[in-house]
């Protein structure tokens, strides 16, 4: 065990993957000499050389399209998209090519491509640097979507994603890059890909979240406990597929659920969660699922983002709604 930041754990995970499999190659803008704008690939080009840690031209479709060709040839590319809002030029290659190649070739060609994306807000940055684009990719058959929230999961799940024969969108909440935690680098834990985890047990309501809001949910659970409300907190980790077994088991116990994410509400992951929970847990529910999310707006200027991003108080307002207490959710129709 050693103490690492989440960024350091990701770096260690990449180093372990590069060491374990000579077919692993890293591609991205500024990931070589600079080590990435967030330094996640710091030192890796020096250690593994420019062919395995490739600085690429500034063309996201080009990064993903050439990754398809490399994977076709038997490589296992790990692409870094510099910021969430920069992934859209690569959207066609991801959705039309990466996601579909296996089905298109009747299983002859698998594309084990990992697409790392620093995501989410809360860092006071400019436009296109704070998006949460998970729903686009979770909606696309053929992709897996993973979101990590702490150093241990960052270390383990990144290696699981790279080793996976399916393409994986790997979301790293950038406001948690400096979050510290103990990391067991022994790889003794069971593979976590595709599973959610119950981070805190509770009895009155379940909070389902992922990525940057996991810490917010844990803090909200502490605050709620002070008021005598017991919250169960689930870190979804896998956004596609969703671990419905873990989610449904929790909601059946608590009877109430609040789903929270940074992305806009409409047709977001919260909608899928609310629908899926209702289908599976209808007779156990004491209240309709509640969504606490970003608004249906383009990501706002940084001085306004604290209003847009769900925080502890807004999350507890949602918990009040789920508990049938007075809240801002009243009188909606």
């Amino acid at each position: 065990m050693s103490t690492m930041t989440m960024g350091g754990a990701l770096n260690a995970g990449l180093r372990a993957a590069l060491t374990a499999d000579p077919k692993v190659v890293l591609m991205g803008e500024d990931i070589g000499r600079l080590g990435g704008v967030y330094r996640i690939t710091d030192g890796l080009q020096r250690e593994f050389g420019p062919r395995r840690v490739m600085d690429t031209p500034l063309a996201e479709s080009g990064i993903l399209g050439t990754a398809v060709g490399l994977a076709y040839r038997g490589y296992r590319p790990v692409c870094e998209i510099q910021f969430d809002g920069f992934v859209y030029p690569a959207f066609d290659q991801i959705v039309s090519q990466v996601a579909r190649m296996r089905a298109r070739t009747n299983g002859a060609v698998s594309l084990p491509i990992t697409i790392r994306i620093p995501v989410g807000g809360g860092i006071g940055s400019a436009e296109h640097h704070s998006d949460s684009p998970e729903a686009y990719f979770a909606h696309t058959p053929g992709l897996r979507v993973v979101s990590v929230a702490d150093p241990q999961d960052a270390y383990d799940l990144l290696q699981d994603a790279i080793a996976c024969d399916d393409p994986v969108l790997f979301f790293e909440p950038k406001r948690r890059y400096h979050l510290k935690g103990e990391v067991d680098t022994g790889r003794s834990r069971p593979a976590a890909l595709g599973t959610a985890r119950v981070l805190r047990q509770g009895t009155d309501a379940t909070v389902v979240t992922f990525g940057g809001l996991v810490q917010v949910a844990l803090a909200a659970a502490d605050a709620a406990a002070d008021e005598g409300v017991s919250l169960e907190v689930i870190d979804l980790r896998s956004l596609s597929p969703i671990d419905w077994v873990t989610v449904a088991a929790s909601v059946r116990r608590t009877g109430r659920v609040v789903v929270t994410h940074e992305a806009p509400e409409s047709v977001g992951l919260g909608a899928e969660l609310a629908a899926g929970i209702t289908e599976r847990c209808f007779s156990y529910l004491e209240h309709a699922p509640v969504r606490v999310t970003g608004f249906d707006i383009p990501y706002p200027p940084s001085k306004l983002e604290k209003h847009h991003l769900p925080d502890l108080d807004r999350l507890l307002d949602g918990v009040d709604a789920a508990l049938g207490r007075p809240s801002s959710f009243e009188d909606e129709s």
Binding site: G62, L64, G65, T66, A67, V68, G69, Y72, S96
Partner: peptide, 22 residues
């Protein structure tokens, strides 16, 4: 297998060529 999205395969060929080079 044939590509329907216009020009998408130009990048795939380039990536495959990088693999050959490696």
């Amino acid at each position: 297998t044939p590509q329907v999205i216009i020009a998408a395969q130009t990048l795939h060929a380039t990536g495959y060529a990088l693999g050959l080079q490696h």
